[in-house]
Measured scan of single mutants.
Amino acid sequence: SEEEIREAFRVFDKDGNGYISAADLRHVMTNLGEKLTDEEVDEMIREADIDGDGQVNYEDFVQMMTA
């Protein structure tokens, strides 16, 4: 549901600035027990970053979650 997606976005957007940065993503993945290299984190950001601004905004996140 849209509310679940919004809630998930809030979990990833640690600093609440409306964007998921590589640092935000790394933090959440580490908490989930996933040890990722910087390259892996950057690749995840690139794949999710639809508009190419280097971070994942809510619209990018929705597209990723509903793809």
Rank of each mutant, 00 (worst) to 15 (best):
R6Y: 09
E43D: 10
G33C: 15
R26P: 03
E7Y: 06
I5R: 03
E34S: 15
E3A: 11
M44H: 04
D53N: 13
R26S: 03
V62C: 02
D38G: 08
A23E: 11
M64G: 04
A22C: 08
D13V: 02
R10Y: 03
V56K: 00
A67N: 12
A8L: 10
D49I: 12
V11M: 12
Y58E: 06
A67Y: 03
N57I: 05
V56Y: 09
Q55S: 07
E2S: 08
E59R: 06
D53H: 10
Y58A: 02
I50L: 11
F9P: 00
E4A: 12
L36M: 10
E40Y: 07
I20W: 00
E3Y: 13
T30F: 13
H27L: 14
R46T: 05
L32F: 10
G52K: 12
N57L: 12
E7R: 12
A48K: 07
Q55K: 13
R46S: 07
E3R: 10
Y19V: 04
L32I: 09
I20R: 00
L32Q: 03
E40N: 04
A22P: 10
G18R: 02
M44S: 02
F12R: 03
E47R: 15
Y58N: 00
E34A: 15
D51H: 13
Y58M: 05
E7H: 09
Y58Q: 02
V41C: 03
M65P: 01
L36A: 04
E59T: 05
A8I: 05
G33F: 15
E2L: 14
A22R: 13
V41G: 01
A67V: 08
M44I: 08
A48Q: 06
E47L: 15
E59V: 06
S1T: 13
I20S: 00
D42P: 01
E47M: 15
E47W: 15
T66K: 11
D24V: 05
L32K: 03
A23T: 10
N17H: 06
D42I: 12
I45V: 05
D49S: 12
Y58K: 01
Y19N: 03
V28Y: 02
G52S: 11
D51E: 08
V62I: 15
V56D: 00
R6T: 03
F12C: 04
R46F: 05
H27T: 13
D60A: 15
D24F: 05
D49Y: 11
M44Q: 02
L25W: 04
D49Q: 14
R10H: 04
I50R: 13
M44G: 01
E39I: 10
D53L: 11
E2C: 14
F12L: 04
E59D: 05
V28N: 00
E47A: 15
S1M: 09
I5P: 00
A23K: 12
D51W: 10
E3Q: 12
D60T: 15
R46C: 06
S21R: 08
